[in-house]
Design a binder for these strands. Structure first.
Length: 814
DNA sequence: CTCTCCCT
């Protein structure tokens, strides 16, 4: 059967492209056979002789399965020509030429040997899943290939036809080979919820419909979350349907997951699953899929530093993948619980756009890249999440000011733990609490949910390690990597200190019953009856960010003394001068802070000059706007006109810019001031003018004069305020004052015509014009006819071009 | 009213 796989007909082409080029994209649908056929065929290529190939798989099961299958193809055991490598479980030997590795392993291999000696090529399987680690692995591999290993072959395999982003980073001329997949046809029906029916009600209704068809075998129902699954499982069990029902999700113990996947002959099975059934596991015997069309995804919020689970509609690629689960072994049926016309986004967002990037920043810093965006990414890590990750690493003391790693940071990166836990582990040395830190890290990293207090959970495990084998294994592994052995008795004394090392940003100060302010400035709550609800200080370990206030699920009490011992900066008294709105003046205090939290305050008798200056400017910046007098407003308008024409030569004096640059133009004048009223009285006009050179000041007066002399002899203020909104300056004057002006007056050496507001003797607008010449000819006769009767004492000559201009009445003139 | 998935 292997000879009939769709990928077979492309193998020669794949070999020939990689003989002469070092990059290739292979697009193949599920069932094409790419995972197992392509790596084996590449082993015999000339460029791979005497070297290894790495095959990257996104999941441990997939890696083992692929290795086992390929070894069997060669009539060998795993660990001979084909082996695998993953955390805590490897089978490779001296003969091994193809290593199937999981994502974390690839990154460690690259970090340990950036030359990748002995490796001829890397195959990225299932790249369309766009996991954070696959993206990082490819970025590092590209860096290696571009800098020191142009012979290194990189083959990216994807089930997605949309390869534009990949081509952008791999090169627009890269070869793309496409292969058909192989699957049975699946009939699609759309069954949106009726009225207000819930997802599980709708799924139950459609399940009845599906089971009526005699050809229906086992049914896979995909719902967004565990709660929906439990609800539907109950409903099916209470219904008269003669089926065997199994829940399936990642938090279920492994035995129950496996039970859900085992085929049974006697009764039809209904498997109610999360998205885990979409890609991670295959279930034999299924030919009906009921897809609710939703997924729950963790979205990282850079401003809170928290990850929130969000339910949203699936993308089209996932929906098709789910549907395909009905046609793996025979023709099938898929019921979609949404309307056919429901729009869906095309593909899943790459994880890099929505995940916590602290590990990515740690890895790239270890790689020697201080600014992660300098690498070549299929999708660049987003700015906000990068800054947030950098801030966390700074707080964990893993990152040095320049962006490199500290000593602690380098040790942490080698530990293969998330940065918070790694920082805790390396920091445990100074607390002489490494064994406890290992036990704690293993607990927090584990998948099991901690019920009740951390202290109890730890005590339980330390007393009876054999009952918690996964935790025990990981504890031992961490202890080995820290060069300690686990003692028989572990003291829990350093527990809260260790947690502060991992979660310095989540130190929490009580601000009410069960309400806490976190060091990152956010508010979080603990149930009012929680035993810690009345503690003044906690460290919040598990938090879920909700729409309103974040909720704390796991916490541990701490003392300020502990905090100060761990973070010497926290204990430092910091001079803090601030503006008091109530007192209308600057006040000073010395405070001890931890992030946004204030530990202690004492008044400060004397304020330093710099602190006062800084505080005053800061207070000014907090205000919605500067106090702008008319002369400053005019100056801003004049400057706006000039800087629009010559942005290189004239500064931008818009309000936003002035607010942002107080330090440069206002600072010299605030020295010694303590009250805001004094600041408000400063001559801002002169302060601004003084920043210009003398020649520039002269030029300003000449190009945009503040007054223009009308034919009447009167000097009239030009209004430049409209220039701030990109309009021309305005000159308002009585019509009679303009007699004799042949055309519109101008500024900026004739470049800009002024808008004239010609007024009646009662200063009512008669005409607004930027073309005076045409007004005299076309508009004036009409105005004259109408106004002569109403204002007989004022001159209304027939020829305004030659008439004597005047600001007063006829009589005074005679 | 906690909990999608994955990995060093």
């Amino acid at each position: 059967m292997s000879t009939s796989l769709p990928i077979e007909q492309h193998l020669n082409q794949i070999r020939s492209v990689l003989a002469s080029q070092n990059r290739l994209i292979l697009v193949a649908q599920p069932g094409a056979g790419k995972t197992t056929r392509v790596p084996l065929t590449l082993l015999s290529c000339a460029w791979a002789q005497g070297q290894k190939l790495l095959l990257l798989e996104p999941r441990r099961v997939a890696a083992k399965l692929a290795a086992t299958f390929m070894a069997a193809q060669l009539n060998e055991q795993v660990g001979e020509t084909v082996g695998y490598r993953m955390r805590g479980d490897s089978q490779t030997g001296r003969k091994t030429r193809l290593e199937v590795v999981t994502q974390g392993v690839l990154i460690r291999m690259l970090q340990d040997d950036p030359l990748l000696e002995g490796v001829a090529g890397i195959i990225f399987d299932e790249f369309h899943e766009r996991s954070l680690e696959a993206d990082l692995g490819l970025a590092l591999a590209l860096d290696v290939q571009e800098s020191v290993r142009d012979d290194l072959r990189l083959l990216v395999m994807s089930a997605t036809l949309d390869v534009t982003a990949l081509k952008r980073v791999l090169g627009s001329d890269i070869a793309v080979i496409e292969s058909e997949g192989r699957a049975f046809p699946v009939e699609t029906h759309y069954r949106p919820p009726l009225g207000e029916a819930s997802l599980s009600d709708t799924a139950l209704r459609v399940l009845h419909e599906a089971l009526i068809r005699p050809e229906s075998q086992d049914v896979l129902i995909i719902l967004p979350g565990v709660a929906d699954i439990a609800q539907l499982v109950d409903a099916v069990e209470e219904s008269p349907l003669d089926v065997e029902v199994h829940p399936l999700h990642g938090r279920l113990p492994l035995e129950l997951q496996q039970a859900a996947m085992r085929p049974r002959a006697e009764r039809r099975r209904v498997i109610v699953s999360t998205a885990i059934a979409e890609s991670s596991v295959t279930i034999d015997g299924v030919n009906v899929v009921i897809d609710a069309g939703f997924e729950r995804v963790p979205l990282f919020n850079p401003s809170t530093g928290l990850t929130k689970l969000t339910t949203r509609r699936v993308n089209k690629a996932s929906a098709d993948q789910r549907r395909g689960r009905a046609g793996r072994q025979q023709p099938g049926v898929c019921y979609r619980l949404w309307a056919a016309e429901q729009p869906l986004v095309g593909y899943a967002e790459p994880e890099i756009l929505q995940a916590d990037l602290s590990n990515l920043v740690l890895e790239t810093a270890l790689w020697g890249v201080h600014e992660p965006r300098a690498l070549s990414w299929v999708t660049s890590p987003p700015e906000g999440a990068l800054r947030s990750a950098q801030a966390l690493l700074d707080q964990l003391r893993l990152r040095a000011p320049g962006g490199g790693l500290t000593q602690l940071g380098r040790q942490s990166a080698a530990l293969a733990l998330e940065p918070r836990l790694a920082a805790m582990l390396v920091g445990a040395k100074a607390l002489q609490a490494i064994p406890l830190a290992c036990a704690l890290a293993a607990l927090m990293e584990g998948r099991e949910r901690v019920q009740g207090s951390l202290r109890d959970a730890l005590t339980q495990r330390l007393q009876k390690p054999s009952a918690f084998s996964q935790w025990h294994q990981q504890t031992q592994r961490l202890a080995r990597s820290m060069d300690v052995s686990m003692p028989r008795v572990v003291d829990l004394g350093a527990l809260s200190a260790l947690l502060c090392l991992a979660y310095p940003d989540r130190v929490a100060q009580r601000i009410g019953i069960g309400r806490f302010k976190l060091a990152n400035g956010k508010t979080a709550t603990l149930p009012e009856r929680h035993p810690f609800a009345q503690h003044d200080w906690l460290v919040a370990v598990a938090i879920e960010s909700a729409t309103s206030e974040a909720r704390i699920y796991v916490a541990e009490p701490i003392t300020i003394t502990t905090l100060v011992q761990l973070y010497p900066d926290t204990g430092r008294w910091e001079e803090c001068v601030g503006w008091s709105e109530e007192q209308g003046k600057l006040v000073g205090e010395a405070v001890q802070r931890h992030g946004e939290l204030v530990l202690a305050v004492r008044p400060l008798p004397q304020l330093s000059a710099e602190a006062m200056e800084k505080a005053l400017l800061e207070a000014l910046k907090q205000r919605p706007q500067l106090v702008i007098t008319e002369d400053v407003r005019q100056l801003q308008g004049r400057m706006a006109l000039l800087s629009r024409l010559w942005p290189e030569q004239w500064p931008d004096w818009s309000e936003a810019v002035l607010m942002g640059t107080l330090e440069t133009w206002l600072a010299p004048y605030v020295a010694g001031l303590t009250r805001m009223a004094q600041v408000e009285r400063l001559p801002f006009h002169s302060c601004l003018m003084n920043t210009l050179a003398w020649e520039q000041q002269q030029q300003l007066e000449r190009l945009v004069p503040s007054v223009i002399t009308a034919p009447s002899g009167r000097a009239i203020n030009v209004d430049y305020a409209p220039c701030q909104v990109e309009q021309a300056p305005v000159l308002a004057l009585k019509l009679q004052e303009a007699f004799g002006w042949q055309s519109t007056p101008t500024v900026v050496d004739g470049r800009v015509s002024i808008i004239l507001h010609l007024l009646s003797p009662a200063r009512r607008p008669l005409q607004v014009t930027q073309d005076l010449k045409s007004f005299w000819i076309n508009g004036y006769p009409e105005v004259r006819k109408e106004m002569r009767g109403r204002y007989p004492k004022h001159p209304w000559p027939e020829d305004p071009l030659t008439a004597q201009a005047t600001a007063s009445t006829k009589r005074r003139h005679e």
